[in-house]
Amino acid sequence: MILHTLNASPSSAAFQDCLSLLHAKDALVLLGDGVYAAVAGTHAYEALQGSPARVHVLLSDALLAGVNPNVQGIVPIDMEGLVSLTENFPRQQAWY
């Protein structure tokens, strides 16, 4: 079980590295420039839909970027939700 955080745009190497290491029981939180991977219909979004991991987007960052946080397959969370995720996952991998 790994909690991944992605703080880099979908065109980054970080996104590709992260994508290849998402497994079932993992969770991914999109934050900072990572929120652009939540734009429905994009390659990045489709790629994430194809991954077995649970995907979240940080609400405040999505709203700031003008990205709709309420899209199918992605669960928006607030800062409190992010904190409780970090408590539930023993290890965290930051992609940036």
């Binding site: 790994i2 290491l21 290890r91 991998q93 930051a94």
Partner: peptide, 17 residues
């Protein structure tokens, strides 16, 4: 390979990126 890397990562208590 990626699957082996994931397996390696979950074998540790802490990851530092």
């Amino acid at each position: 390979e990626p699957d082996k890397m994931h397996k390696l990562m979950v074998d540790y208590d802490h990851l530092l990126s």
